[in-house]
Design a binder for these strands. Structure first.
Lengths: 112, 112
DNA sequence: GATATAATCTACTCTATAGTGATGTAATTC
DNA sequence: GAATTACATCACTATAGAGTAGATTATATC
């Protein structure tokens, strides 16, 4: 990766913040992770996340507005899917970062 | 990147969410970006972000607790710095994602 | 057309946190 | 040791959003 520092405007910082915020709730992360297997209906997501249907629907709406997921309606059902592959990289990067830190913390307690 | 789906516990989703949340405020992002040049004092950060000292201090504390930045105290000053290089990759990835989307949106309006 | 089902929307409560001005604290200078 | 400087914290207000229950809309089935 380049890692050159960008010049960001006020609006850019706000867009960035909103995008990060979309990933900041456990329920929304659960939904994103559930969708990593592929397209699913709201009912399936309700079942897999263990959330209430209204709540799941609300979070899906937020994810849709943040364009993290996309929606396809067919008959009675709404099918949701990950909108962009960068979501995979993003979650992977963040998970690795946390994991590295936890491992480093653990290392402080055991002789190396 | 691997992109294999992880199995995450409830606690893992909460940790992930908290980490993302730390990046979800424009002021905190401004601070992170200001620190990309290297270590800075609170006064410098106040000046460069245009925020009030109390607010900057509060956000720095949140970033410190989220372990996104680290602090070094010397004399009257507190010097803050980026704690982990993955921050660079993370911000870069998110910026690119947003930029790609904006370019795609723009493309919808101009013939290709 | 009546009924059932899937999803969304609305209204509400509750909690978290952003921003702000005043105050507190610790190191430094005189 | 009094004043100054740099930063942190407190007290307060305003706002955002998470969760929930119930109403509403749209589609399908009889």
């Amino acid at each position: 990766m380049s890692n050159t520092k960008r010049h960001l405007s006020e609006e850019a910082f706000e867009m960035l913040g909103e995008q990060f915020k979309a990933f900041s709730e456990p329920m929304r992360l659960k939904l994103v992770y559930a969708l990593m297997d592929g397209e699913k209906t709201v009912s399936e997501l309700v079942e897999q996340t263990g959330g209430l249907q209204a709540n799941v629907s609300k979070h899906l709406r937020m994810l849709l507005e943040a364009r993290i997921v996309e929606r396809r309606k067919q008959g009675l059902n709404s099918y949701y899917n990950i909108a962009n592959d960068s979501v995979f990289d993003l979650c992977d990067l963040m998970c690795n970062s946390i994991q590295d830190r936890l491992e480093a913390d653990l290392g402080s307690f055991s002789a190396r």
